[in-house]
Simulated assay, not measured.
Amino acid sequence: MSARLRPTSRRRALVAVGTTAVLALVLAACGGSGDDAMSGMHHGTKTSVSASPTAPSTTAGTGHGGHDMDAMKETASDDGLAAQKDGYRLGAAASALPAGAAAAYRFTIAGPDGKPVTDFAVDQTKRLHFYAIRSDLTGFQHLHPTMAADGTWAAPLAALKPGTWRMYASFTPASGPGKGEDLVLSTTATVPGTASDTALPKASGTTAVDGYTVTVTGRPTSGTASPLTVTITRASKPVTDLQPYLDTYAHLTAFHAGDQALAHLHPETVVSSGQGGPSLTFHAELPKSGDWRLFLQFQTAGTLHTAALTLNVG
């Protein structure tokens, strides 16, 4: 996905960080909600989790994605890792957040004139999508913050574990020089305390969440945009009651291990009725080799579920 997250038909196709290839997609268990090692997407609902082995302890602020990396990525970038692009800049009120307690993360998006932007286009029913993830790709949160009249956004983060976290803002200006341009800006925040990194789970073709089984088929080839099929079942029976969530039947976000580059995918399956499933086809094209951590979000009976996927790109 480009950091601009420039979609076809408003992000129902892949918005990738670049243009290379995916060789293999593998699934693994996701982590817990709240202050668990691997919190799920926080949208007013909680997701089931399973534990992952942990690596040796480090101190907060070390590891991938620290402020030293931000200093090198203050200018234009195509992977969502820059705080500034095309004259737009993400400015956070604080670079540190408390450990183990919910907190509001406040920030502004300044335009090319240096003033806070207040006019945003609606995309997937929201004016801004906010993501938070720890440097070891745990603790994923996907939020839709509120904006004050002066352009200050407040994202209600669930409790964070000690370590370095990256905060992303995905938006489209509705006016000004960047009108209609899809952008993703990000910066880091430190949560004080002793941090233990969690290793990515081993490769697996399926994963389970909240009683649902998610299976992935398809092997996208290098340099080619290829289809990827996700099938959801429950008690070995096809799930056909997927509800629209953000104008689609599923939401898929990916983060690259090591640098936390962000990619954003949506199913090509069009929402044509109140319910969908069991299979969803995704347009797959990711730019970097190595491991990616994907978070698939889907809704049934008013409850949002988050399944974690591990993707290896050769």
Rank of each mutant, 00 (worst) to 15 (best):
L252K: 01
F140D: 02
A174F: 05
D119W: 11
L309G: 08
T303Q: 11
S39F: 09
T253V: 11
V239E: 02
S204G: 15
R106H: 13
K161D: 13
F140C: 01
G61I: 02
R234T: 08
G180V: 04
S9M: 12
L137W: 07
Q275F: 12
F120N: 02
S33L: 08
M167S: 03
E285H: 13
A174H: 03
D136P: 00
T303N: 07
A261M: 07
P177C: 06
E285V: 12
H283A: 07
A199R: 12
L143Q: 08
A154V: 04
V191Y: 09
G277Y: 05
A250H: 03
D35T: 15
E268R: 11
G314F: 05
Q299F: 08
A93V: 06
G274C: 06
A149M: 06
K161L: 15
P162Q: 02
V271F: 08
L228K: 03
N312R: 14
A82T: 09
D79Q: 04
A103T: 12
L23W: 12
D119P: 06
H144K: 07
V122C: 02
F130D: 00
V15C: 04
T75L: 06
V117R: 04
A3P: 00
P7K: 06
Q84T: 15
P116E: 12
P238G: 02
S226N: 14
E268H: 11
S279K: 03
L200H: 06
G34D: 14
Y249D: 02
T229G: 04
M69W: 00
H266D: 01
L185K: 05
P98D: 06
R10A: 15
W153D: 00
T19C: 00
L128W: 10
S273A: 13
Q260T: 10
H142T: 01
A92N: 01
T59A: 14
E181T: 15
G40T: 08
T8V: 14
P201F: 05
A257C: 04
T164P: 00
T58R: 14
A3F: 11
A94I: 04
S273Y: 07
L228M: 14
S186T: 06
G163Q: 05
A132I: 05
H142Y: 08
P227V: 03
H251W: 10
V270T: 15
K179L: 11
Y212V: 00
G91H: 12
A71R: 14
S52I: 13
L228S: 11
T125E: 14
V230E: 02
G111K: 01
S9C: 04
A121H: 02
P156V: 04
K179M: 11
L262C: 02
K115V: 03
K73S: 05
G114D: 08
L242Q: 01
G100R: 07
R6K: 13
P227E: 06
A83G: 14
A225W: 08
R134S: 01
P112F: 08
A189R: 09
P112I: 02
T164E: 09
R12N: 11
L185A: 03
L262W: 09
T172M: 13
D241N: 15
E181C: 09
G163L: 10
G302T: 07
T310Q: 07
G151M: 01
